[in-house]
Design a protein around this nucleic acid. Structure first.
Lengths: 338, 338
DNA sequence: TTGAAAGCGGTACCAT
DNA sequence: ATGGTACCGCTTTCAA
């Protein structure tokens, strides 16, 4: 049971109080704010560094009835967690904001295949004061739990039917911008490889595509695939090309899909961007690795994580004015593929 | 200050004790093990689910003098954290193992550019019972702190001069295996694009390359680049090709480097694998996205994270028999690029 | 402005 | 086997 590093006992408020010649209460007051004479304050600060005092988190949390932890819930199989170019950035952003506010981020990955309700239990268990929830889906049981618990949360993305705070980008608007520009540059037969229609990001991108085309929209030019993945992009492109050999532009639902599409295009003897213009989505590492480099929509991943964390923090502070929806800017980046 | 979700007060050991008609001590005993009559045990279990009891982590941690948290320290700039194909897997593996043991993983990313000693303080602050440390470097100040604190840790990778437990793969042996096979398949002028020589992984791969070649080793066939990155691979390959136009095989220090090298090779009119055989390292998403698909060394990323976490857990349990070094298997995967 | 004291929710030791 | 009780380190009334 040699759990804690042996060393000398960590010093406590008690030690500080004694060294400064005051009571524990006074020490606590300078730590947390309250009426303290300048003289006492100084003596205490000196004592603190003298005895090397560091507050005990557990004790503080116990009396304050908080855990000082925020969950980062990713509802995604491990493999997708690793593939997704945005999750890492979102996590980093959330972590930065949270730790600056002295909160710990506890990362929980719900491998969809396994039990969702392990997380539900976790959330109910009072292990966290709030949560950032990534890639929730419609009717997600986790969202239900959160609602019942009235736990301060923020979703990244905006699954329909969710009532809590959320932060996202304007997928639909960005898609429209992409397609409009494609048309402006002379593309006339523009197709789309849509993906992940079961989440808002996927369906909104498709909606934007459709809206931008208006009357010119042709359902035959949309190919739908399951995942935002390279292989899906390649397969989708191949099928799309069979149906519409005269196509001269493609909007792919993600960079990975776009990269796959480019591969299929090349295999079919089409040149990018000369014969077919290709645009992706995410501005992930993929975008600058394809040749030609991909035109795409920039996702502010760290910003999303950071904003979601801030929204949770605001609720934790009892801030009533929390906006329930925040849209971050997702500019289109034009490179060489279209 | 409406921090905790309002709702009814959470029930405590006290409530359970009263509902079961026993004392708090007895309740604690069934929770933690000890002599309890079968009768009491049953009554208590019934009472627990009746009142919906969930233990309070803070209180338990306070009395036990532990935090029940383990740090996951990544000493890497944010951008590299996102690029590295292994870190995500390592993290997932560590997280899984840790949470199964009821530990929380607290992720700390040290953006090298900024203060390393913020982490040192964190570690000294008693916020965690132990730590998994990824990508430490030689003479890393963090390693020093850990040593001084005698904090239970495990490193992923094996930076020289580190005395604690570590888990890694046999970079050198894997590199040797790659090069030997390249020779067996008839390659005669084999070059290497070495990277990240400031870490053990990078220098060990180079050492293996050298060892496999023995007398045939030609320093002119080694090109060194800074990072395990695509762009570095492309640039390195270009330079290498200038020096050794007759080269017929390349061992790249990572898949990203290999992908960059393949691009440069193609630009120079060389066919892979006909003219030049290329082998990477990591078996990351890159490997199956290039065409032809990459032959490479498989990194058991989740396994590494999991093993490192287990090593920390073992030390926390006071297990004296912890092996200080664990090597996981990293098999070579032969695909089409060589 | 400050000190004293009462808990926060558990665990563990001590008698019984 | 069980109940009683002291205590973990800190915050927060309440008096003074």
């Amino acid at each position: 049971m040699a759990a804690s590093p042996s060393g000398p006992r960590r010093s406590t408020v008690h030690d500080v109080a004694r060294a400064a010649g005051v009571s524990r209460g006074t020490v606590s007051r300078v730590l947390n704010g309250g009426y303290v004479s300048e003289q006492a304050r100084e003596a205490i600060h000196r004592a603190i560094s003298e005895v090397g005092y560091v507050p005990n988190t557990a004790a503080r949390n116990l009396v304050r009835q908080r855990t000082q932890a925020v969950g980062f819930i990713v509802h995604e199989p491990h493999s997708l967690f690793l593939e997704d170019p945005n999750i890492g950035g979102i996590m980093l952003g959330a972590n930065t904001t949270l730790s600056q506010a002295d909160y710990q981020m506890v990362c929980v990955v719900v491998d969809t295949a396994r039990d969702t309700d392990r997380v539900a239990r976790y959330l109910s268990g009072g292990f966290v004061d709030g949560a950032v929830i990534v890639s929730a889906r419609h009717q997600d049981p986790i969202s239900d739990v959160v609602e019942r618990l009235r736990l301060p949360v923020a979703f990244v993305g905006h699954p329909p039917g969710i009532s809590g705070a959320w932060v996202g980008i304007d997928n639909r608007g960005a898609a429209e911008a992409v397609v409009s520009r494609l048309r402006e540059t002379g593309r006339r037969r523009i197709g789309m490889i849509a993906a992940a229609l079961d989440r808002d990001s996927g369906s909104d991108r498709l909606a934007g595509f459709r809206a931008a085309l208006g009357d010119a929209f042709d359902p035959a030019l949309v190919e739908t695939v399951d995942l935002y993945a390279f292989a899906d992009g390649a397969a989708g492109m191949t099928r799309l090309l069979e149906r519409a050999p005269d196509l001269d532009g493609v909007f792919a639902a993600s960079d990975a899909v776009a990269a796959g599409a480019m591969q299929a295009l090349r295999a079919a003897g089409r040149r990018v961007p000369e014969d077919v213009g290709v645009v992706g989505f995410d501005d992930s590492a993929w975008a600058t690795r394809t040749s030609p480099q991909l035109s795409t929509v920039h996702q502010p991943a760290e910003g999303l994580g950071s904003a979601a964390a801030a929204a949770v923090l605001a609720q934790l502070d009892g801030d009533q004015s929390v906006r329930t929806g925040i849209l971050l800017d997702a500019p289109v980046v034009w490179r060489d593929s279209a």
